[in-house]
Design a protein around this nucleic acid. Structure first.
Length: 430
RNA sequence: GCGGAUGUAGCUCAGCUGGUUAGAGCGUUGGUUUGUGGUACCAAAUGUCGCCGGUUCGAAUCCGGUCAUCCGCCCCA
């Protein structure tokens, strides 16, 4: 009989238990930080109506980017990020939410594109957003950045320190207005600046699209700094002041590892103000490990009410999987998940062994019993060794009759006879 | 959609100037006297050498096609 394949589909991830424990611990810690900052957890459907996911009508084109399918007359698809569902949710439950509304998601998302390094077809993304109706102070932009920084900080012992670079769409809009660029030129300039770090002919490209004079000015932002544009126009002054105030606020929230970098654009998405990206100090070549920004109208597709927001997304799978693949995470804290293995030697010992197991578990001790009681002792202790149990609790006929336990320290190799209470005390103390 | 690389045991790979029964390490299972693991030794099981076709007396090995995977480009809502 032909066997079916055991490999996952291309672009899908599965972890071994050791890695999964690290993944889960980091996810839990980061979510704990967000909850402490008052963000509500949203657990939205993975499947949305196709019309919610896309405005395009050309299915052939969309299908290469998304997972879409049809049941009866209903076209639907898997969500590709957290924002679409969030927009729909907020617009649909506006009466029941309190604004400014803060929410986070930690969810799997799906993309149909061809997988590449760090780009998967199924991945976890952590989204956090603060939304207001009609208006929302820029102070929340700083809070989002500070909260995300705190979330990364909670897992710093695994991923190392991070830094955040902050850009500003409003600055560029003011700049392009000052330079009298056409909307076509603006769009090209946006793309060029976004890709600046990847290009070695950035300046030539600029000259080609916006002309030499404008190119000189734009380049000056990177060579001489944005402050050289103070006093050039009211709009530029306002944008520069906004950035300065933003940095002061970040500093007051304890964020020291932030800097202005006007090359940060976040693609050509819906952002309208501050944008930002986080990077790892120790692994900058991984690229942005999270980012976000301010958008002026989150839910215009769903509601006539103007919902303003500031949000961020963390590519959690990419971050963790890339680091683990490169052996950049020390996994030793996750190598010993089991405190004790309980070995029952002979079927007659199983009831007594299970009473011991229950008593230990009731005291919060992680215990795994080996219940193939007729297996040779060698196999049993080998099992205890392989799961890296700190202790083996050996229960044979002698132990059962005299109601004691042979407790073996698997690292030291020493063994002592203890009663149940003594065993609990030994295993509870780290 | 375009380009590069790779497909041999459960895993990582060797073999590839064509020549009988296809190799290693790891892993798995059993054993080295039956209540003591991590080390060592012995043994066993598992492959249509990705698929189709061509050249040849003979193909894992050479050629063509195809599919899959990985990497990069495009795209990234």
């Amino acid at each position: 009989m032909e066997l079916k394949p055991t490999k996952t589909l291309s672009g899908f991830i599965e972890l071994l238990p050791l890695q999964q424990r690290c993944f889960d611990e980091c996810a839990a810690r980061m979510q704990r930080v967000l909850k402490t900052a008052g963000f509500s957890h949203l657990d939205l459907p993975a499947i949305e109506r196709a019309e919610v996911l896309t405005d395009k009508d050309n299915w052939d084109e969309i299908e290469t980017q998304m997972f879409l399918f049809q049941k009866g007359d209903t076209k639907m698809g898997l969500r590709y990020d957290g924002t679409v569902g969030l927009s729909r949710y907020v617009a649909g439950h506006m009466n029941d939410l309190v604004f400014p509304f803060r929410a986070y998601q930690f969810a799997r998302n799906y993309r149909g594109e061809r997988p590449q390094r760090g780009r998967y077809r199924e991945f976890y993304q952590m989204d956090l957003d603060i939304m207001g109706i009609d208006s929302l102070s820029e102070n929340y932009d700083a809070e989002i950045v500070a909260t995300l920084a705190a979330a990364y900080d909670s897992v710093a012992e695994f991923i190392g320190p991070v830094n955040v670079r902050i850009g500003n769409r409003r600055f560029w809009n003011a700049m392009f207005e000052y330079l009298n660029l056409t909307s076509e030129q603006c769009r090209s300039a946006f793309v060029l600046i976004d890709k600046k770090d990847k290009m070695d002919d950035f300046y030539d490209g600029l000259v080609e699209t916006v002309g030499e004079n404008a190119a000189v000015e734009i380049n000056k932002v990177f060579s001489s700094g944005y402050r050289s544009f103070v006093g050039v126009s009211d709009a530029l002054d306002s944008a520069i002041r906004e950035m300065d105030e933003f940095m002061v606020l970040l500093d007051s929230m304890g964020i020291k590892n932030a800097q202005i970098d006007l090359g940060i654009m976040r693609g050509h998405a819906y952002y309208t103000g501050i944008v930002f990206e986080f990077f790892l100090d120790n692994f900058p070549e991984l690229g942005a490990i999270g980012g976000g920004g301010r958008y002026e109208d989150l839910a215009s597709k769903f509601s006539k009410t103007k919902i303003i927001g500031v949000g961020a997304a963390v590519g959690f799978s990419r971050l963790m999987v890339a680091l683990m693949d490169e052996n950049k995470i020390d996994l030793t804290p996750f190598m010993r998940p089991v405190r004790a293995a309980v070995l029952a030697m002979g079927a007659g010992q199983v009831p007594y062994a299970m009473r011991v197991v229950a008593a230990l578990r009731a005291n919060g001790i992680t215990v795994v019993p080996y219940l193939d009681a007729n297996k040779k002792f060698k196999n049993q202790i080998e099992f205890a060794d392989k799961i890296n149990a700190d202790y083996s609790i050996i229960i044979g006929e002698n132990e059962r009759i005299s109601e004691i336990l042979a407790v073996k320290d698997m690292t030291a190799g020493t063994q002592q006879n203890l009663n149940l209470e003594q065993t609990i005390n030994l295993l509870k103390t780290a």
